[in-house]
Design a protein around this nucleic acid. Structure first.
Lengths: 147, 147
DNA sequence: CTCATTGCAAAGCCTTTGCATGGAG
DNA sequence: CTCCATGCAAAGGCTTTGCAATGAG
């Protein structure tokens, strides 16, 4: 938490930007939640603790955090961007439940080499990748069976 | 082309929907273009040949084609959905150039087994996946070097 | 005849932006 | 003091929807 705040402050200083209570508070709320939240969901949580913070500040802070490397956008294609922690969190991919919308993270060491090889073949310089597996998560399967 | 039309008509009949000139024409234009187009880009092409067709019809037909399995949505995260041919086109993934926005398709047989195994471990039922590799395509690298 | 489709304009949804006020450096 | 940040409301970009008129089955 402290480390993230320092990281943010360093970023702000480096870019001639200024600290603010709002930014710090939004970061705190964001870090407190381990889920992949939409901006609106984060906004709700922020409003609960700090009702005076406006929604554009949340959007702006979120974008800032992405630029600063503290957050990452996850786009599951439902219209709203989700945000996940990016600081000291390793690379990973997602299982996305089409029923409940939940995201499960996973890592598999075999992916990267394949990606690099494919790119090599196409003479493509890889910056990043995303592997999303869509389907139904275990919880939702159980629920279906109970019916 | 004829096969796709038949497929569409079969879908329409099956669902109590009706044929229309517009739908057929939009499908034709769509099939004529091998690129991954946004709705707006497709609309432009449609308008060139058939100026009387409205944009909402293009959107609606595109959605219809997706449901009918003739088109697939590709979301590269820039705000606009792109559409690719899905009928008699095998599964594949994408290299996405962050500079020119071009999509390069690729297939690698090693992906699926990994995905299935990961899902198995997490007791997740896979419906589909998407592997997108973002970076700079060969053309754009060449352009950079020329400068 | 009945019900789906069309084209237009309007609305929806998420996100960004303009502007005046307030605050950090 | 100088700019940046904030909060509000307004605008933006893409897509969907309501509605009256048209057209397919």
């Amino acid at each position: 938490m402290e480390e993230e705040k320092q990281h943010l402050n360093a970023y702000l200083k480096q870019h001639g930007l200024k600290k603010s209570v709002q930014r710090e508070r939004i970061l705190e709320v964001f870090l407190d939640i381990e889920n992949h939240l939409t901006a609106e969901e984060l906004l709700e949580h922020v409003k609960k603790k700090y009702p005076e913070i406006g929604y554009s500040t949340v959007y702006r802070s979120l974008n800032l955090m992405v630029k600063a490397g503290l957050a990452k956008v996850v786009d599951i294609g439902d219209g709203s961007a989700r945000f996940e922690h990016a600081f000291r969190h390793g690379e990973h991919d997602h299982l996305i439940c089409e029923r409940c919308g939940n995201l499960i993270e996973f890592k598999d060491p075999r992916c990267k080499p394949i990606i690099d090889e494919v790119a090599e073949q196409k003479k493509f310089v890889v910056k990043r990748h995303r592997l999303d597996i869509f389907g139904i998560c275990n919880d939702c399967i159980d629920k279906t069976e109970e019916e």
